[in-house]
Write a protein that binds this DNA or RNA. Structure first.
Lengths: 229, 229
DNA sequence: GACCTGACAAGCCCATGGCTCTTATCAACA
DNA sequence: TGTTGATAAGAGCCATGGGCTTGTCAGGTC
């Protein structure tokens, strides 16, 4: 170790030019590259080199900005989760003032872009597969799902004030589960049913959840109007 | 390369004893070891060495009995899927002759052992994450879900013959999605709601799906009886 | 305009992955 | 009991993964 190897100064292919970016830009680029990797090649194909190649940076940058590839995946989950929440939030805001319209918008937005996206499912399944082994992922999951359900519960109780709290809680859980199940299945295999049919099914479930306490939507023909063409 | 290295004959720690098994026994052992690996450590932790260590065999056996680790995972999916189908089938058979009881049993069995099992979810998410990248897995998935839905659809039409076919199809899809969503969520985070509550929610959805055509279950107090203690 | 700081590229190191290949072992049959 | 052939063990090979180190260059500062 006493001799100083000259190495690089002899031939030394020139180092690639680069531009400096702020930490935020780099982090975001890495997060988006991770999401694309997860979507394209699954968890197995999401390696440090693959992520960094997509982000257009060298592989050393990942550990420079994140505490390893696991931390980057956690950050990606947070980011994707926030983006989904924002899309739902926006749908609610665009729905106007009627809380019933807001609830409908919130549910049905799950079956439109950008949420209805097989790539997003690939990302999501990767996260699900990590919930059991990674406590951090589990905590974020509980947070995301908890707030979604809380929002639904609030809307339900605004629409039907006389609904018992326990009832609203279970209705919110049911609607969330139905949306999740339909979303999962349509992303896995889009040939089974269409997005419009998924929206119709969710609409029907929503009306049934509300209709138990509202005479105006009890057993009318609205049930079929939303399903038949 | 001309000289023949003696190697093993010098010291040669004795090779482990073993017993010969039939191909079926070995395959099954490897499949079960794979399922346990997936459940415990996720896809990332499911390596050839890990699987074979759990199966109690050497790593060479995997390629001897399966065409690589990917093929073993496919075989595991088939096996686990068949076991779930069998559990549902058994629940239906034990339910007696009333098709309504059969439908209820088929739905609610999803929230009892052996299907209600976080380990099983871990296995399942691993498969989901492969559907996008592996055409073989995708085909098996389509088959498993298709037959499940077909069974539900048949039961629905037996119970309510006057239900339009398109209606039965959508109802089967909805019930499947609800069950899947609830099952997914309760396996990911069992603190949000209980298995009994899940069963109650599914019961309610089932009755609503049927009740639209049967006066006897339209808007009675059964709705709450299944939820309140 | 020299210089300092730290973001960045490149590539090395060790661990682990999947798979192959050789050799050892067993069980059945003669 | 000896022979035989398929089954099994386990080391080895090559590729890839993650993390880390080292040196370099961009962009701001005085």
């Amino acid at each position: 170790m006493t001799e100083k190897p000259v190495k690089r100064s002899v031939i030394s292919k020139p180092r690639a030019r680069f531009i400096r970016e702020t930490a935020d830009v780099r982090r975001q680029a890495l997060i988006e590259a991770t999401a694309r990797c997860l979507a394209d090649k699954g968890v197995a194909g999401t390696s440090v080199r693959a992520i960094c190649a997509r982000a257009g940076v060298s592989s050393g940058l990942l550990t420079h900005y994140f505490d390893g590839v696991d931390a980057l995946i956690v950050a990606t989950y947070e980011d994707v989760g926030a983006r989904v929440s924002a899309a739902l939030e926006q749908a609610v805001e665009e729905a106007g003032d009627d809380p019933r319209d807001q609830l409908r918008a919130c549910l049905q937005a799950n079956f439109r872009a950008p949420i209805l996206d097989p790539d997003l499912l690939a990302t999501w399944t990767a996260f699900w597969s990590l919930v059991k082994t990674d406590a951090k992922i589990a905590a974020i999951h509980a947070d995301v799902y908890g707030s979604t359900r809380a929002q639904l519960e609030t809307l339900l109780r605004v629409i039907v004030p006389e609904m018992p709290p326990e009832r609203a809680r279970l209705a919110a859980i049911s609607l969330t589960a139905l949306v999740d199940g339909l979303w999962l299945e349509i992303c896995l295999d889009p040939t089974t049913f269409s997005a419009e049919e998924a929206q119709a099914m969710v609409e029907r479930a929503m009306m049934l959840a509300l209709g138990q306490w509202r005479g105006d939507a009890g057993r009318g023909d609205w049930v079929d109007q939303s399903v038949r063409p």
